[in-house]
Amino acid sequence: MRSLDLTSPVVAAPMAGGPTTPELLRAVAGAGSLGFVPAGYRSAAQLADDVAEARTVAGDVGVNLFVPEREPVDLEAVRRYRDLIAAEVEALGAAVGPVVEHDDDDWDAKVDLLVRDPVPWVSFTFGLPDASVVSRLRRAGSRLLLTVTDADEARAAAELDPDGLIVQSAAAGGHRGTFDQRRAPGTDDLRTLVGAVRAATGVPVVAAGGLSDASAIRDVLDAGAEAVAVGTALLRTDEAGTRPTHREALADPASTSSTMRAFTGRVARGIRTAFSDRYEDQPRRPTRPCTT
């Protein structure tokens, strides 16, 4: 039977936008585990610096890539939503960026970087890379993980012969890695998803979503996962780059979470706010996720 051969069954999920820091990766490595550098929202040059810094403090690390959207952008819908929220966002002291006609998150340059300067593990979110990308990274020596959210996605991913599948449930904090952001993803619990994906593919599974304590981790390992990825559980650690307001909300017993699209257009799970409640119905499908 295939195995991921990880030194620890618990790995640190990549958290783009600030929470994953060199200090957090150092702590993860010090605990004998594997951390992932998030490539999302970073240029290829910034990613190169991030990986170099991570290596100095953590040794071997993985890198997580956002797979670009293949469907055309509904620019008018994005503009309408931008105009709708602009005044409220600016009143909060933030700025709404311009509408970008095309943004592939520097995909080609990031793949080229990881071929030239490979890391032990590369994971993918929001879809599947082309077979040519898989082949190039594998020849460079990287092992590959593909994120899936149901058995159908897992079957499609298995055709690329990955080393493992990250099975992400609806309980996962942050963005959901579903292939098609226009549809509402399933709500099966993580244990059920792990069993379904294992039965459908036989590929080793890293389970992700709502894993906040040892008993939850043991439950999905017993269900057939070889490892788990934790993210939200690390947000309030001293080493994480979580913003103070976010830290306070995570600790507030009055905070509740829900699935939402209001902030980016992508399916995500986060802490409910007045903003998310007010604008949740606005960025509707089939609008492409707004990544500006």
Rank of each mutant, 00 (worst) to 15 (best):
R191G: 08
D180W: 04
V115T: 09
S123A: 13
T187Q: 15
G177V: 02
T125M: 14
A207T: 05
G127F: 06
L160C: 10
D152N: 11
D152I: 05
S142E: 04
V197N: 07
G186N: 09
I166F: 00
L145P: 00
V167W: 14
L128K: 01
D150V: 03
D163F: 01
V133C: 13
A200W: 11
P185H: 08
A172C: 04
L146E: 00
V203G: 01
A207E: 07
T187R: 15
D188S: 11
V148D: 02
P185R: 09
A184C: 06
A170W: 15
R143E: 12
L137W: 01
A200I: 06
A156S: 10
D161C: 08
L114G: 09
L193W: 00
G141I: 07
V205C: 15
G177S: 07
A171T: 05
G186L: 09
R138Y: 07
A131S: 10
W121E: 01
A184Q: 12
L144S: 13
R116P: 01
P204Q: 15
T149G: 13
D180N: 08
R182M: 08
D161N: 12
I166D: 00
A171Q: 14
A200Q: 11
L165D: 07
A208L: 10
G202R: 01
P120S: 10
R182A: 08
T192I: 06
L193Q: 03
A131L: 12
G164N: 13
A131W: 12
A196G: 07
T125G: 07
S169M: 13
R136C: 06
T147V: 09
A156W: 10
L145Y: 02
P162I: 02
D161I: 02
L193T: 00
S123N: 12
A184Y: 09
V119N: 11
R155M: 07
L190K: 01
A196T: 05
A200H: 10
R198D: 06
G173L: 04
A199I: 01
P162K: 05
G174F: 02
A199Q: 10
A170L: 13
F179H: 13
D180Q: 03
T125V: 12
G164E: 15
A170D: 09
T125I: 13
G177T: 02
E159W: 07
V194G: 05
G202D: 00
A154R: 05
V197K: 05
P118A: 13
L145T: 00
V203A: 02
E153M: 10
G173N: 04
Q181N: 11
D130Y: 03
D117P: 01
T192D: 14
G173H: 03
R143T: 03
F124Y: 12
L113R: 04
I166K: 00
